[in-house]
Structures are given as structure tokens and as C-alpha cells.
Design a protein around this nucleic acid. Structure first.
Lengths: 124, 124
DNA sequence: AGAATGCTACTACGGCTGTAGAAGGAGTAG
DNA sequence: CTACTCCTTCTACAGCCGTAGTAGCATTCT
């Protein structure tokens, strides 16, 4: 399921600690983000509609839980980028990553190490 | 500048060969994509408004050119993903990439090689 | 000249997004 | 009982996106 930019904000707050009420989510949003309470409610409702979040009543208050993991959401966002911007192939992305100064030397070394570790584990 | 999914299709066709007319772009779209000619014109107009494409008259026909490179568009899309889905940090993304089976063994080796090459060139 | 073709500019329209206000029920402090 | 506070649901609205139709002007075939 595709999340919008604003929805990611909500979801991040929710993944961080859940279940959570709308108010708790509001408090956990990044400092810069100042949405009205009802804005958050609206987005939560939409997320529930999208089946990305579940809603349960606790007294008169709704309590929300993520229905998809951050991992899954990331995967989906990543795939989408790959698809639209890199012809769906890792090749161009890898190339881009390495070429575009996207990595600090440290990250490059870390990446190299991680990749090597993984590569080693595989049958050729 | 942020491109939408549909705009990426147009842009890809345009990067492939340009300058190009709307009709040429139409012909160069992936087989699956069947947009009306005017749809393409509309999107081109919007891209011109967004200053992502330039338009020049050749007789009574418009000829379009990309104003941003594919590299730059990719960079921007990539940054946006990084920002919204990976907390703006390469660390989580790298981790994700290596963990999530996003790479075939071959790609991992290639990535490792590329990364090493780059890492070598740098002052530690 | 008349008809067909091709291009342009303008208009449209439903759905999604960001952002919220308003109204109303319920618990709580006085 | 009354006022305040908090939560909920409904409604709104502008802007962007996907997708195109229509009308009008120029060129070209017959």
C-alpha cells in the first residue's frame, strides 16, 4: 500500500510506540510538524480505510495500531522508486548510489562489509 | 522538482531522445501505456509549467526538451525516498538493502566491487 | 473548393491530499 | 446543574493528478 508523505509522518509516530491514541501520535510528531488535532484524525481515518492501521474503541477514545510493519512500508516505497525512477532494476540504482556521492566513505565501507558478509553466505 | 509517476513516463521517453514532439514521445512510451495524444500534451504543458521541460515552436508544432537530467531527477526522487521513508539517513537504507533480499548475489558482488573501488580512492 | 489530417489551446471532471472547522456527546471540576 | 475539556464524526475546500474531449487553425490530398 502506497503511503503519502504526510501519512508517513503519522505512521512513523505510530510505529515508534503503539497502540496509540490520536493525541499521543500528535505529541510524538517531529517538532516541525504542527497539525491540528482533527487533521491527524482525518489522516488516521484514511489510513484505517486504506487498511494500513487498525482502530479500536477504548471507552469513547480510538486507539490505533499499525497493520503493516515499517519494514513492509519501506519495501513498498523502495520498490516503487525502483520501478518508476530506475527502470525497475537494481543495476542502475546501485550504479547511481555508488556514483552519486550518496554515501560517505564510512558508509561505503560499511556497505561493502555488509555486502561481502552476505555474498559470502551464498552459494556462489 | 518532484515528478509524478505519469510524468516519469513522459520524461523517460524524452530523455531517451530529444528534442522531441508530443507525437514522438507518444510513440516512444512503453507498450503498456496507451494515453490519448491530448493527455500527453497536457502533461507536457504541466512539465513546462514546472520548468522541467522546455517548449519551442517549430512551425506550428511544439518541440520539447528536458531541462533537468535524468541523473538529477533520480537524485531528487532518491533523496525524497530517503527523507520520508528512511529518516533521511543512508544507514537505515543500506541496512535495508542488504537485509531485504533486494539484491541478487550478482548485484551484491557488483555493488561490493564498486563500493570498494570508490572507497579505495578516498583518503580513508 | 472541400475534406481529411494534424496540431494547438482551453476546459473538464472525478479522485486523492493536505488541512481543518463545526457540531455534538460525555466526563469532570465547581 | 453548568461550564470546561476532550473526543468523535461529518463536512469542506483548494490544489494536484490522471485522463481526456472539443473547437479551431493550418496543411495537404482529391
Amino acid at each position: 500500500m502506497k503511503l503519502t508523505e504526510a501519512e508517513w509522518q503519522i505512521m512513523k509516530a505510530l510505529w515508534e510506540k503503539h497502540p496509540a491514541t490520536a493525541r499521543e501520535i500528535m505529541e510524538r510528531l517531529p517538532a516541525g510538524v504542527k497539525w491540528a488535532y482533527t487533521t491527524i484524525k482525518t489522516m488516521l481515518t484514511r489510513l484505517v480505510d486504506k487498511q494500513v492501521v487498525s482502530e479500536a474503541k477504548q471507552g469513547n477514545t480510538s486507539v490505533y495500531d499499525p497493520l503493516i510493519s515499517q519494514r513492509k512500508a519501506r519495501l513498498s516505497a523502495f520498490r516503487s522508486l525502483l520501478e518508476t525512477a530506475f527502470d525497475g532494476a537494481m543495476g542502475p540504482l546501485v550504479h547511481f548510489l555508488v556514483e552519486e556521492e550518496q554515501l560517505t566513505p564510512k558508509q561505503k565501507r560499511e556497505l561493502a562489509r555488509l555486502v561481502e558478509d552476505q555474498a559470502k553466505g551464498e552459494t556462489k
